[in-house]
Amino acid sequence: MSDSTSGRRPLAPRGEAARSLTPPLADARPAAVRPESAADAAPLRVGAGTKSRRGAEDPAIVRWTLIALAFLAMTILVVIPLANVFYEAFAKGVGTYWDNLYNDPDTLSAIFMTLKVAPMAVALNVVFGFAAAWAIARFRFPGRALLTSLIDLPFAVSPVVAGLLFVLLFGLQGLFGQWLREVDVKIIFAWPGLVLATTFVTFPIVARELIPLMEATGSDEEVAAVSLGARWWQLLSRVTLPNVKWGILYGVILCNARAMGEFGAVAVVSGRITGQTDTMPLRVEKLFQEYNLPGAFAVASVLTLLALITLVIKVTLEWRTRRELEEASRLRTLRSEA
């Protein structure tokens, strides 16, 4: 496991946050420190097709070949599958598409189950993520590095194994199985199990967004607020939360996307009871097994749409945090120059 306090985040399921944070900070060195080089003033003219002889530039033929290859790879890997989802979903017409979604009670129930389970998992992990980030980014204590590494642990666990964990705990043959039966509480093969499995799988996401963010913002403002007499709720609502609100939102978006799409873990704990414990991804598989491809693709198209919306929000948030960080570093530069 790695120590994420060092700034490197090898286990991030997505490196985006690291990306959205690093480039603006790297650019933040004051203009005076930069070597006076023409490259700073030169507009990038890489794709412009001008003859290039700069030492750090690739010849045009290499450039265009690589761009073409990259487009080819992206098209085959991502674009064609994306288009195929919608094509297959609408292959039998809009009417059938609508029927497949709206007039199939089992699909509807799966949609509602996903809408119920995902927000619960997200909510649980947001509270945890914030608590963990507060403890890790604001205080130093023995075992801090270990704790930071342990947060990544669920990423190393195969989703199927994650599901199995809860079956072993709460299943009929599980550790608490007998007791749960006596008090008549169903966890496995019921929605609480789905929530548990989903929460486990998405466990590190929010914390991983917030820890580096809160480390980057530092505690100066909070210490200042406390010294000015702020109580903890004022501190939280006026200083800390406003500072990390975009980070939280970012974590929520990522966590939610993963929660809605989780398959392996929920497949194990749900028991796949049609119309009762199916989530949308499970419903996709069931329809696929029943050779109802238009139905499967209809549900898949909804999930794909959600994924695309997630990407749009993510890009917007990255753009915003990037701008805020640039603004902050510009202010810092101005202040240090003054």
Binding site: R14, E16, V79, P81, R258, E262, P281, L311, K314
Partner: peptide, 21 residues
């Protein structure tokens, strides 16, 4: 932005599409 699609897209959808492509 599309580079991140495999992270955002549920794996079941990926499986379904790849099975038909």
């Amino acid at each position: 932005a599309l580079v991140d699609l495999p992270f955002a897209l549920p794996t079941a959808v990926a499986g379904l599409v790849y099975s038909s492509l």
